[in-house]
């Protein structure tokens, strides 16, 4: 009785498909077109060329930028996991008045928009000598990704029975050993969420990197792409080849680990 035919879905699907597929299509087409080919951006190149990729790698330094982004992301995410889960443990377990204040404070940090303190944050990093250094950008990304990690971890740890901690304490484990040997191994699934959310943010960061990494030698992917676009307005094809190379790792990762990406998103949004 409730079976209706689904024909009406087809036009809706076509619209969704066109809107969401076209950016990737256009980017690909432009990347494979030679700079002198002025045909419509919808037309696939008659003679696809790899020259743009060569330019992007040789002149745009996109491979080096990918490397910088990768190093920054890996170290930052590692620190976020360690510092974040450590901080979340007492906040989830030891619910004294004081710790409630700390937790509210951490959640409040999440509300501070980076832009409102960028000017003074930048001058502090300059004073500390962190400009154009890996540690300068890593420490800032770490700080601003921490509140979300602490939030996710403390929610998750609250759901682990305290009997585990008590048993460990009876066996003579101090808090440090209890955390690393008993609690941390339980955190695999929430760690996957934290790694994915923080990883994507670090990889895609532009605002902080723009301030901290000013030397072109230290460019991350987003910085390399933006300087590529502003310098080579005459060669947009090479710039889009660079952009394609930059999003490829993310797209491949997402397609392979989709389940975890979506779980991470939902975990972070729903209390």
């Amino acid at each position: 009785m409730k079976k209706k035919n689904g024909i009406w879905r087809i036009p809706v699907l076509i619209v969704i498909f066109c809107v969401y597929f076209s950016p990737f299509y256009i980017l690909t087409v432009i990347s494979f077109k030679s700079a002198t080919d002025l045909s419509s951006r919808w037309e696939f190149p008659a003679a696809p060329t790899l020259d743009n990729f060569r330019t992007a790698i040789e002149q745009g330094g996109i491979l080096k930028a990918l490397f910088h982004s990768f190093v920054i992301m890996v170290i930052a995410v590692l620190l976020i996991v360690v510092v974040g889960s450590l901080a979340a443990y007492p906040l989830a377990r030891n619910k004294s008045k004081w710790n409630k204040v700390i937790k509210a404070f951490v959640m409040g940090i999440m509300m501070v928009p980076p832009l409102s303190i960028l000017v003074s944050l930048y001058s502090i990093i300059v004073d500390m000598g962190g400009v154009n250094q890996y540690w300068g950008i890593i420490i800032i990304l770490l700080t601003f990704e921490l509140p979300q990690a602490i939030f996710l971890y403390s929610n998750f740890i609250s759901s682990i029975p305290t009997a585990l901690d008590e048993a460990a304490a009876l066996d003579g484990c101090g808090p440090v050993r209890t955390f690393f040997l008993i609690i941390f191994p339980q955190l695999k699934s929430v760690t996957a969420s934290v790694v994915i959310l923080a990883g994507i943010h670090c990889w895609n960061d532009y605002q902080f990197s723009l301030y901290v990494l000013q030397s072109s030698e230290m460019s991350t992917v987003t910085l390399a792409i933006s300087s590529f676009f502003s310098q080579t307005t005459s060669n947009l094809n090479a710039a889009s080849a660079a952009a394609l190379l930059a999003i490829l790792p993310v797209v491949v990762c997402f397609l392979c680990l989709q389940k975890y990406f979506i779980k991470g998103m939902v975990d972070s949004a729903v209390k």
């Binding site: 699907l13 969401y20 980017l27 676009f229 947009l236 952009a243 999003i247 997402f254």
Partner: peptide, 23 residues
Amino acid sequence: TRTLVYLPVMIAPLIMGYVMYFF
């Protein structure tokens, strides 16, 4: 379809901005 709609969330907004410039 779900994958396709969710995919742009992963892309750096900066790069999406440049792609939109082509449009």
